[in-house]
Design a binder for these strands. Structure first.
Lengths: 256, 256
DNA sequence: GAGTGGTCTAGACCACAGA
DNA sequence: CTGTGGTCTAGACCACTCG
């Protein structure tokens, strides 16, 4: 039987992982410094660093230059039920915090969302979905979403200008039921949702905003809401670390 | 303005990535050897190796001990429309190859599936979904799925023994429309599907079967099919490299 | 300036594949 | 046996944070 030898860096990674999962190294706390671990184990700095890098790409720790290596504050996954979160009842619960609020509160954490509203062109692929020119200005609601003080998701909504400019959608608070209810009131009720899910590496800006190393992977979820006429009235681009989320979709089978 | 310095390994990675995407290094071909690149650039072996490791975790190349470093044979993403692939029309097209076949053919590649059929206990969480004891034997159809000669997915279906043992589901070929049609004929029509999507690192066995380095990430899709009575009659566990797939879900919005 | 993680070089040796 | 990628050590220096 070919019993292969476990590299030192893997042994150390296994050891540290166990201590993190057992709680010996608490969430958010600092790991021993690399040079300290090197001295303890009697191994070289680079060997220890390989172990830390492995844990980093697993999402268990984040190393910060000049400061130290820290255990991630969220080790569980946030459950996002994509189908039910767009139901009216979900959107109106939790004091108008909606589905995102419920998802975070389920972890015993406090949700927070920081919106930035602007007008400008959408990314080319989004513009195409919305059926507008790539240069045409649309309404952009960019939200940075937190669980306690951890950024867990970047969500940017794009609305065609002709139905969104000058409406309450340009206010920070869109009221009970959010943008979906406001659009419905104006005759743009959403009846069908499509979500495309990809996994990729974050851009440098995203990595910084999400406070993750740039070799970690993120979900890129492109959420498209259409009216009965088939018009896309809202596109949301979600970017979120894959280590933090699990997604769930439910649909009825079409017999045809 | 803080303009930070680009590390050498990143410069090299950028350079190699460009050459791969332009086709200068063809799909499936060998990259120059690490020591060769080191000599060309005048940089140290470890520096070059860092660049290769970066490309590896991006899914562009796979390094094989003792053989060389090879450009991945599939650089595009395979599109999996999770909603339409379970429609009868999709399942019956392509000479009974079904949705998977269509997905692969869209890339101009040839689909192939190697099934292994057995009876045994399901993983604990799957057993719970199926409503059977963790020790109880179920029907297991494990499929290794290829595009040309590349393994692109491992899909393992679990069926409760009381409805699957002794039926055509224990044969390699389940006929036109596949297991879904066979179950429907026996009064177990599937009317609702749930898929849970997580991203994780592969086990050592999965990494080997999928021919990917163990620090690459994979989708773990748990597909649950239920009858009108709410009984789960089939659970499929998909494991597939995140670099190879994009997923799409479509559903009708429930107004309530 | 002291302390932290990150990069880089030099060079040795190990593990695996294949002729 | 040779060639490939992988691991490891020794030690220097860089980049960033914070007092």
């Amino acid at each position: 039987m070919p019993e292969r030898k476990t590299p030192k860096w893997r042994q150390l990674a296994d050891d540290l992982r166990a201590k993190i999962k057992s709680g010996e190294f608490a969430k958010g706390s600092a790991l021993p410094q690399i040079r300290e671990l090197a001295e303890e184990t009697g191994w070289h700095y680079e060997t220890v660093r390989s172990a830390v890098r492995a844990l980093e790409s697993e999402g268990l720790v984040v190393a910060k230059k000049g400061k130290g290596t820290f255990v991630s504050s969220i080790l569980d996954k946030i459950y996002r039920d994509s189908t039910s979160r767009y139901r009216k009842s979900s959107r109106e619960e939790n004091g108008a915090r909606g589905a995102f609020g419920a998802e975070i509160q389920r972890l015993g954490m406090t949700p927070r969302s920081v919106p930035t509203i602007s007008r400008g062109p959408a990314p080319a692929d989004v513009a195409e979905i919305l059926g507008v020119a790539a240069t045409e200005a649309v309404l952009i609601r960019a939200r940075v979403m937190y669980a306690d003080d951890t950024v867990v998701q970047l969500a940017t909504s794009y609305f065609p200008g002709d139905i969104a400019f000058g409406t309450v959608l340009e206010q920070e608070d869109t009221g009970t039921g959010g943008s979906i209810s406001r659009l419905a009131e104006q005759g743009h009720a959403q009846v069908e949702i499509t979500e495309d899910v990809e996994v990729r590496q974050p851009t440098d800006e995203e990595a910084e905003a999400l406070d993750i190393p740039s070799d970690r992977t993120v979900f890129e979820i492109t959420h498209i809401a259409r009216t009965a006429e088939g018009r896309a009235v809202e596109v949301v681009r979600h970017v979120a670390p894959t280590t933090l989320w699990k997604l769930s979709y439910t649909w009825a089978v079409d017999a045809s």
